[in-house]
């Protein structure tokens, strides 16, 4: 874990902002935000990746704009302003995906438009972008977006491998494989995310055990 001291170089601080979302405060596994797309669209690795990248794009653009406008927007109407900014970029993504691939658009369904109510974006706009300069806010948002994408991919890959016996549409186990169909149905999302959380809890506990005296409060 990197520590940020007051004298740390600017580059180190930027790296710190970037890795916050990627690992320490991962939106999917640590903050548990934006769970609806996390569980609903991760039936395959491709869907998960595209949803993650779409969200990351909206996140970076909205955070940059919110940060640019942070001194202009009155405090009383800031949430409404953020929502309008986010909804605008979501509409851009919505039409862009429709243009690139109609099959993907159908697979993701209403969840592209539902990026508007993804708590990560409003949360980052309110908690980080409204208080930091555009460059820092964008880097932090990019880290968060990529962290979200990684989280979604971790779920999508496992679900596709178990539920369809393939990854990125390429069959892995041959024709004899009996797919574990429930994994690509809604319950599978809950089970796989539960298993990932279980794995991380085990890893954290193991780290604490190895560190010996270190208390949980001292972590990152």
């Amino acid at each position: 874990m990197s520590q940020s001291t007051p004298n740390a170089s600017a580059r180190n601080q930027t790296w710190d902002e970037f890795t916050e979302g990627l690992w320490r405060q991962n939106p999917v596994f640590v903050m548990m935000l934006g769970m609806c797309p996390t569980l609903a669209v991760t039936v395959s690795a491709v869907n998960a990746l595209s949803m993650g990248l779409a969200t990351a794009f909206v996140l970076v653009c909205s955070c940059a704009l919110v940060s640019l406008m942070r001194k202009v927007v009155p405090k009383e109407v800031r949430i409404a302003t953020y929502i309008v900014i986010i909804a605008t970029f979501v509409t851009v993504v919505d039409y862009a995906i429709q243009m690139v691939s109609l099959a993907l658009y159908d697979a993701l369904g209403a969840f592209i438009q539902l990026i508007v109510v993804n708590c990560i974006i409003l949360g980052r706009a309110e908690a980080h972008a409204s208080k930091n300069p555009p460059w820092v806010a964008s880097v932090n948002a990019l880290g968060m977006g990529l962290g979200f994408t990684v989280g979604l991919f971790a779920l999508g890959a496992v679900r596709e491998i178990l539920g369809a016996g393939s990854l990125f549409g390429i069959s892995l186990f041959g024709a004899d494989f009996q797919p574990w169909v429930v994994m690509v149905l809604p319950p599978g999302g809950f089970f796989v995310l539960g298993s990932w959380l279980l794995g991380f809890a085990w890893w954290e506990k193991r780290k604490q055990r190895l560190a010996g005296l270190q208390t949980p409060a001292e972590r990152g």
């Binding site: 429930v182 149905l185 809604p186 319950p187 089970f191 995310l193 539960g194 279980l198 809890a201 506990k205």
Partner: peptide, 22 residues
């Protein structure tokens, strides 16, 4: 079990409910 405590067990519970609703 200690590693399941908190959100992990809640997720599995929700998964089982989802299975039941199917």
């Amino acid at each position: 079990p200690i590693y399941f405590k908190g959100t992990a067990i809640a997720m599995v519970t929700a998964g089982l409910m989802s299975l039941a609703f199917m």
